[in-house]
Amino acid sequence: MASLTELDGPSDAALAAAWQAGSEQAAADLVRRHASALARFLTGAGAGPGEVEDLAQEAFFKAFRGLDSWRKESSFRSWLFSIASNLRKDAYRRGKGRVVLSIEDHDLPDGRDPASELVADETAGRIRAGLARLPRLQREVFLLRAQQGLDYGEIAAALGTTAGSARVHYHHAIRKLKELVP
């Protein structure tokens, strides 16, 4: 699946090949293209503000060092997410990972109607809190689907599971999160 930003320039595969041929500019372009999405994913997955930057840096570093193992069946972005997910899992296993709940409200949608804004506000807050309580796989599948818009095949590739399992995890997550909607 091509990421939207690929429409405006060389494909991720072309940039990756250029990096392997020695172009640092190509690597920098790949970082700029995917950094924001990766940061959103890591934040949604519960990484704290300082941790997001460290994990993103490590994920890109590992990706460039291990480009040979990127099988082009999945997009560069979903492969990058798989590396980031593993890093987060490792951090959690080491006891350093915590699911952090943001108390900032910058991610709340702008609403012209104060009443609907309040409802959206409340829903967003509940969903963030609910996400922190979900099992890791359910949380990450939900984020990759709802936040990143990946299809189940891509999610399966990113999280090392099957498309069918990803679908089941997603629906479990939805079912639990729906209970939090006022």
């Binding site: 959206a120 967003a124 969903i127 709802a146």
Partner: peptide, 12 residues
């Protein structure tokens, strides 16, 4: 839920 999920992490 999906709409709110889309916005999660937007502050990052």
């Amino acid at each position: 839920v999906v709409s709110a999920g889309r916005a999660v992490g937007a502050q990052a």
